[in-house]
Design a protein around this nucleic acid. Structure first.
Lengths: 239, 239
DNA sequence: CTTTATCACTTGTATATACATGTTGTCAAC
DNA sequence: GTTGACAACATGTATATACAAGTGATAAAG
């Protein structure tokens, strides 16, 4: 076991909650008991429980214990940074991805600003449409810095770019800033998506950062309004 | 100083970043240095830095240190659970709240389901419109369990309900689940808001939980699409 | 000049201890 | 029966120590 102890405990407990071994409303064993049964220290258990709390699995009650929250009401994962492929795995119906465009470009000023890069930087431009039940309802436009991603193929784009970056290139995606707005749809939206009469589109702008805090990807994900849904879990102050 | 040491340090460091004492891209002092200068242990500093990391202020780089992220690009606060009043403080223009309705009701089945309560529970129903520059662009419908909030006045609703709950009633709001969708607008939307020709509306459904993990409030916040903006900061895996 | 080893630094993880503080049940006093 | 003190639990905070592991500069070896 080369992996972290507290992450492993987190995974195990989360799994038990998903499988219903711990039911919503119940108290899980106390920190001392967990420390004993996992043969570790209380602080390590506390780190695992903190993760569970942050991800919406439990609520810690001082003096009482930790109660299991009802995660069935809202669909997982709660808060952002999920790729289309990860998302699609939880859905029914026929789903696939069309790669409309895959080219190397030089960024115009708008893109320079979004990616915080110079005009002579090489940029991968990937345009994909996402098809649910034969309706093209999502348009994803990805821009990646070539210096981070030397090669990119149609096949990779049809699968998951994220998976390729993390597993093949060993890049670690660390965090993202996301912005959701509603905007008038463009000619491109109309030509590539089944807009079904809608004249507005939900735009999710994603700024994705690597481990080393460098911005390396800018994504616009454009959703037909009736098929858009975003769920979020947020704690108020801080733990 | 009866408050937490690590929260105080978190606040102080966050303040320094907002004020530009620490510039984006710079490394902040190491954990050992901070521990020395704050006369505390490294673990306590680490708790403060973890909060800074979770809230998008810094990125920790193993072996190097913690770099300050550029928080000016996206507007704070990043992730949810912000009341209208807190939000309005960062904006320019004339802003106020109209209380359209404040009544006690019994929940119909839809509301029973949303609030997970019985049909004979007393519920406060608060309907408010939010006015920016003389345009009514947000419709907030709040439903609160009376057993948690015995009294509620027009004046409180014109200010911040959250502030009243936390400061006066000493209830602690702990976390919320949020869902964002786009839906056809209703007759109520048309009558209470300046829809400006829009026939769709952005609906943010909020399920708010107290400290003790009890659901106590359900809110629908309905935004005219062109004035809606949601920002989010998310870390990919954990920590 | 290039490569390699090492060292001094950084953050990450795990453990142990102590005390503070909130919750709940028990049991005695009234 | 009600109240109140208390004990036995729970989680929260703070501290100290040890070692693992990544980074970057320096110095020695080739």
């Amino acid at each position: 076991m080369k992996t972290n102890k507290y992450k492993r405990i987190y995974e195990e407990l989360a799994e038990k909650m998903k499988q219903g071994v711990f039911q919503p409303g119940e108290l899980i064993p106390s920190e001392h008991e967990l420390a004993a049964s996992y043969e570790t220290s209380r602080e390590t258990i506390r780190k695992a429980l903190t993760l569970l709390s942050q991800n919406g699995y439990i609520q810690k009650l001082r003096g009482k214990g930790s109660v299991v929250l009802d995660t069935s009401r809202a669909s997982f994962p709660f808060s952002g940074l999920v790729s289309f492929k990860e998302l699609a795995e939880g859905l029914s119906g026929t789903i696939y991805t069309n790669v409309e465009e895959l080219t190397l470009i030089r960024p115009e000023p708008y893109l320079q600003h979004q990616l915080q890069c110079s005009a002579k930087e090489d940029i991968w431009k990937v345009t994909r449409t996402r098809v649910f039940n034969e309706e093209r309802i999502i348009l994803d436009k990805d821009f990646l810095l070539k210096k981070n991603v030397p090669t990119l193929t149609r096949e990779i784009c049809e699968q998951s770019i994220y998976a390729y970056l993390e597993k093949e290139l060993d890049l670690t995606i660390s965090f993202a800033r996301k912005e959701i707005t509603v905007e008038p749809c463009t000619k491109e939206d109309l030509s590539l998506l089944h807009m079904n009469g809608f004249s507005y589109i939900v735009v999710v702008r994603n700024y994705v950062y690597l481990d080393n805090a460098n911005l390396f990807q800018y994504t616009e994900s454009r959703h037909r309004p009736d098929k858009f849904r975003f769920v979020d879990f947020a704690r108020r102050h801080t733990i």
